[in-house]
Nucleic acid binder design. Structure first.
Ligand SMILES: [Mn+2]
Ligand SMILES: [Mn+2]
Ligand SMILES: [Zn+2]
Ligand SMILES: [Zn+2]
Lengths: 143, 143
DNA sequence: ATCTATAGTGAAAATCATTTTCAATAACGG
DNA sequence: CCGTTATTGAAAATGATTTTCACTATAGAT
């Protein structure tokens, strides 16, 4: 799974005439090693201990590249920070966001997905992607 | 309809011990007069001709108040600008966003709304609100 | 292995939307 | 009309992100 994403990114790099650098490898490792919805700052801070020389701007640039290459998806959950998550080929999910603790969980629902396509079609819209986020209190935060 | 919103805002102002100012009235008029999903800048620029003395910060502050009072809803459609739309009591809709021309259209779908509640419930989530946006090309932009 | 052209990097500066500060002004109950 | 308190506009501050730039590293060619 992670290997597949590495391959995809290497291919992307090669085809774009970009270069494979030590920093990109390190950031990719760190990104693939988490299953959270990481913000740029979070990833930067986590990286900093083991790799103090990697700059903030490089993390920004690299995460953007991940998104461009298709191995990452960019998000805005309303806390002012851009977050990134893994994209797995052929998989799609949406999110539940806790307004209490900020926890982000995932769900899939085929019926809703289908209906979204129908809604778009019925409006003559050629849908590219969608965003569906349910905000509320997670079980823990309700107590 | 617009009158109702004015009343709601007046009530909000009164209950909060805030003051009814000329600027707030003007901005409210302008906001209620449009049916678009206006960004703060758009509203500010539109206002500027007739009311050159109203400051940017006041527009910001006032739109936030509208949202707080319940007559407006705040949005982020990914273009980096916060947008506001009218909120009509008891009404809810979601959005289709054209990635070509930026046009924003609206739709409602009760079945999807219900399913969202079910999804949240099945995850032990106490849902507060949701965000569902379908991004793609509008009919005009497909040509 | 060395050279060369070009992409990438880190640090600092620049952007851009938004928020805050502050001195001056306006609203409103008495 | 007064005094108190909220509001305003302009400018400065903020915070996330992006750009700039001098220097470095990569990768293909020699
Ligand atoms: Mn996710
Ligand atoms: Mn709308
Ligand atoms: Zn929570
Ligand atoms: Zn369009």
């Amino acid at each position: 799974m992670e290997l597949v994403k590495k391959k995809i990114f290497e291919k992307f790099i090669a085809e774009k005439g970009l270069k494979s650098t030590r920093q990109r490898e390190i950031i990719l490792e760190a990104f693939l090693a988490t299953d959270r919805h990481m913000s740029i700052e979070e990833l930067y801070l986590q990286l900093r201990d083991a790799h103090p020389t990697i700059g903030y701007a490089t993390v920004y640039r690299t995460l953007k590249l991940f998104a461009e290459s298709g191995i990452a998806r960019e998000f805005q959950f309303g806390d002012g920070q851009t977050r990134y998550e893994h994209v797995t080929q052929g998989e799609h999910h949406d999110h539940l966001v806790c307004v209490g603790c900020g926890a982000i969980s995932e769900f899939t629902n085929d019926a809703v997905e289908r209906m979204q396509d129908e809604i778009a079609a019925s409006h003559g819209f050629a849908i590219r992607y969608h965003k569906m986020e349910l905000y509320g209190l997670c079980a823990a935060c309700q107590k």
